[in-house]
């Protein structure tokens, strides 16, 4: 089960993910993010404070979107990762590819 709550702060799209990002749920995140990218949304903030689990399916979606956002000269920032989610990012070497910040406030500053 994954709940995606979407909001907008000026030109920044904020997505708060709650639950589990796995084989079953990653397609709904992919649909939401692809829709935003196709509408030329260049600044994305993903609040992962309530994300309890991520598998390789979720990582693949984030990697694919990060590449598309970079390709349109935009930026995606992830915030507030739980330790188990952070561990998966580190293990896969994904911390090198993403800007990961401790809070949404810091992410908004970084995106402005």
């Amino acid at each position: 089960m994954l709940e995606i709550v979407q909001s907008q702060q000026n030109d920044i799209a904020i997505l708060s993910l709650q639950g589990r990002l796995d084989t079953n749920t990653s397609s709904s995140l992919e649909t939401t993010l692809v829709d935003l990218v196709e509408k030329s949304q260049k600044k994305l903030l993903l609040d992962l404070s309530a994300l309890e689990f991520i598998s390789s399916s979720g990582l693949r979606v984030l990697l694919m979107i990060a590449k598309r956002v970079k390709g349109m000269d935009g930026k995606m920032v992830l915030t507030s990762l739980k330790s188990n989610v952070q561990n998966v990012f580190e293990m896969a070497g994904f911390t090198m590819l993403f800007t990961i910040l401790p809070s949404n406030e810091k992410a908004i500053e970084a995106l402005q």
Binding site: S55, S56, L59, R60, M91, A92
Partner: peptide, 8 residues
């Protein structure tokens, strides 16, 4: 990627 994660 999944295989890499399992091994790690």
């Amino acid at each position: 990627l999944g295989i890499h994660i399992i091994h790690t």
